[in-house]
Nucleic acid binder design. Structure first.
Length: 214
DNA sequence: ATCCCGAGGG
DNA sequence: CCCTCTGGAT
């Protein structure tokens, strides 16, 4: 891998000042709700997930109620987040597995979390970090993937390899904020479609900068 | 590589 | 109309 630690440090320093409090955007009151909200966030905006979970969490209050939910009713609740059949099925089945295999408690290890349907590395990393304070890795979603590539922090497209590159570049204490900061910057300044490079505070350091050079 | 899938923006 | 949104399973 290219030694771009120096460039990363400069970029990270600027982004940290720009986004001093990269607060998580999903709303939840416990680890189970965090898990459910994160499953729902696949290919869907966080704001929309929050709108759906507001009534969802009022209707289903614990893992037993999610596990015993009527499939059609649950589908209707999560309908607007897209992929509603898969998401409803995964939430129900994961809840059943949590009851049968993990004493009704959301697992706190990567290995156990990955046994839940609808839960892969990205979702597991978020549950571990925000739910249990375990920093085992970096959540790589569509924003982190896109920004990492544009900023020259990785040459890979495979999320696992991107995660490894980011972990090598950054300090462990920054992992959670790094993921959230890239997401915020991606939403506000560097979206997939039309990146606004002229407004970007790290454009001088960005290999993908599309500003007209004067 | 492909499918799941509605909502919102340009 | 088109593309994208805090992915995951086959």
């Amino acid at each position: 891998m290219i030694d771009n630690t120096y460039n990363f440090n400069r970029i990270w320093s600027i982004l940290q000042k720009e986004y001093p409090h990269p607060d998580p955007a999903l709303h939840y009151n416990n680890v189970l709700e965090l898990l459910v909200a994160t499953i729902l966030s696949a290919q869907c905006t966080d704001a929309h997930v929050n709108k759906v979970t507001e009534s969802l969490f009022r209707k289903y209050r614990n893992v037993e109620e999610f596990a015993g939910a009527d499939p059609d009713e649950l589908e209707k609740e999560v309908y607007s987040t897209g992929f509603y059949r898969n998401k409803a099925k995964n939430i129900r089945k994961s809840s059943q597995i949590i009851i049968s295999d993990f004493n009704s408690r959301v697992p706190d290890t990567m290995e156990d979390l990955l046994t839940l349907p609808g839960v892969a590395r990205k979702t597991a990393n978020i549950v571990l970090a925000r739910g249990y304070g375990v920093m085992g890795g970096i959540a790589v979603d569509t924003h982190v993937k896109r920004l990492s590539k544009r900023l020259g922090l990785t040459e890979h497209t495979d999320p696992v390899k991107i995660e490894r590159d980011l972990m090598a570049l950054s300090r462990q204490e920054d992992w959670e904020d790094l993921s959230m900061t890239l997401i915020l910057h991606g939403r506000r300044v560097c979206p997939a479609r039309r990146p606004r490079c002229t407004e970007c505070m790290v454009n001088e350091l960005c290999p993908s900068n599309s500003n007209e050079s004067s």
